[in-house]
C-alpha cells in the first residue's frame, strides 16, 4: 500500500519536474534566480555525501559487529582520541556526510567527546583533503602544514575539553540522546535490512531539513553580502583572518575541494588567513551548524564555535607572523 503511494508520488514529482521547464522561461528577477541556483547547488552537491554518510552510519550501526571498532582502539583516552582523529582516512566522507556517521558512532558506543573528535578531524585528516590541499598549495607549504596539524590539534583539544564534561549525554539534543538511550525497539522482530531502512528514514528525517535550511541560508548570505567587502579586508593581517573565517562560515564548501576554491584568493589574502579558511571552514560553517544542531545542543555548538574560532585565529596569526 505505502509502496504504491510512494512510487506514485515519485512518478508524480518526476512528471512535474519534467513538465515545468516546458511551460516557458520563468523570468524571475536575477537575484531570486541566483539565490535558488546557489541554494540548489549546495543541496545537490551535498546530497550524495549525506547519503554516503547515512549509509556508512547504517553500516557501522547495523552491519559491523558490536564492539568491533571499539576493540581496535587503545584504552588510553588521549591515544584513543588521537586514533579516532585518523578514522577519517578509512571513512573519507566530507563534513556533510560526517554528521550522520558521527551520530552512528555515538549510537555504537563512542563517547560524545570521541565522536566530536572524529567529526572535527575527519574532514581535514582524510586522504582526499590531504591530496587536494597539497596539490593546491604544495606539500611543503605553510598552509598545508598549518591545515593538517591545525585540524588534528583542534579536534583533539575539543575532544579533551568535552571529555572533561561529566555528563556526556547532556551535550546532545534530548531527542538524539533519547534515540541513543533506546534499546533497539525491534531487536526481536526486525531483520538487519529492516533496521537499515528504519535508520535511513530516521536519519534523513533529521538531516534533510537541516541540509535544506543550511543551503538556503548559505545561498541568501551569498546573494546579500558583497564579495568585495570581504576581499577589501583580505590583505590586513588581522582583518584578513576574520574575513576568511566569515567567508568560510558563509560559503560552506566541502573540505575535499575547498583548497581549489580558495587557491585563487591566495594572491590577495595573507597565508595565515588562507590557513584559517582551510581549518575553520570544514569544522564550522552555516551548513555544518545546521547539521550539527540535529545532534548537539545549541550551547555546545556555541562553545565549540568559540573555541574552534579562537584556535583557528591563533593558527592564522602565527602563520601570518612567521610566514
Amino acid at each position: 500500500m505505502g509502496l504504491v503511494v510512494g512510487l506514485g508520488g515519485i512518478a508524480a514529482v518526476f512528471v512535474v519536474r519534467a513538465l515545468t521547464p516546458v511551460l516557458g522561461p520563468w523570468s524571475l528577477p536575477n537575484r531570486v534566480q541566483d539565490l535558488l541556483t546557489l541554494s540548489i547547488s549546495v543541496i545537490i552537491e551535498s546530497l550524495p555525501f549525506v547519503i554516503l554518510g547515512i549509509v556508512l552510519s547504517i553500516l557501522v550501526q547495523v552491519w559491523v559487529p558490536d564492539r568491533w571498532i571499539m576493540r581496535i582502539l587503545p584504552r588510553n583516552a588521549f591515544l584513543r582520541r588521537a586514533m579516532i582523529s585518523f578514522l577519517g582516512i578509512f571513512l573519507p566522507v566530507c563534513e556533510c556526510g560526517n554528521v550522520p556517521l558521527a551520530r552512528g558512532l555515538i549510537v555504537k558506543g563512542f563517547t560524545v567527546s570521541e565522536s566530536m573528535t572524529f567529526l572535527l578531524a575527519a574532514p581535514i585528516v582524510n586522504p582526499i583533503t590531504i591530496l587536494t590541499t597539497g596539490q593546491a598549495f604544495g606539500f611543503d607549504s605553510w598552509i598545508f602544514a598549518a591545515r593538517l596539524v591545525g585540524g588534528f590539534v583542534i579536534a583533539n583539544v575539543i575532544g579533551w575539553l568535552f571529555s572533561k564534561h561529566p555528563d556526556q549525554d547532556s551535550l546532545l539534543t534530548d531527542r538524539f540522546a533519547a534515540e541513543c538511550r533506546l534499546p533497539d525497539p525491534h531487536e526481536h522482530d526486525q531483520t538487519r535490512w529492516q533496521k537499515s531502512v528504519e535508520l535511513f528514514t530516521r536519519e534523513s528525517g533529521v538531516i534533510m531539513p537541516a541540509l535544506f535550511i543550511g543551503s538556503l541560508i548559505a545561498g541568501l548570505v551569498q546573494v546579500a553580502v558583497p564579495r568585495s567587502l570581504l576581499l577589501s579586508l583580505g590583505s590586513n593581517p588581522l582583518w584578513s583572518i576574520l574575513a576568511m573565517m566569515a567567508l568560510a562560515f558563509v560559503i560552506s564548501v566541502c573540505s575535499n575541494v575547498d583548497s581549489f576554491f580558495i587557491l585563487p584568493f591566495a594572491s590577495t589574502f595573507m597565508p595565515g588567513s588562507i590557513a584559517v579558511f582551510l581549518v575553520f571552514g570544514p569544522i564550522i560553517d552555516i551548513k555544518m551548524l545546521a547539521l550539527m544542531r540535529t545532534t548537539f545542543r545549541a550551547k555546545v555548538l556555541v562553545q565549540l564555535t568559540v573555541i574552534v574560532g579562537l584556535l583557528s585565529a591563533l593558527i592564522g596569526l602565527v602563520v601570518n607572523y612567521f610566514a
Binding site: 519536474r17 541556483t37 558583497p226 585563487p264 594572491s267
Partner: peptide, 28 residues
C-alpha cells in the same frame, strides 16, 4: 525550497552574481 527544487526550471547564474562577486577579483 523543495517545491522550488522541483518546479523552477534549472538556470545558470546571472550577472547579479557576477557583479556581486566582482569580475576577475581572484587570481588564476
Amino acid at each position: 525550497m523543495a517545491t522550488a527544487l522541483v518546479v523552477v526550471p534549472p538556470a545558470t547564474l546571472t550577472t547579479a552574481t557576477a557583479d556581486q562577486r566582482v569580475i576577475n577579483s581572484t587570481q588564476v
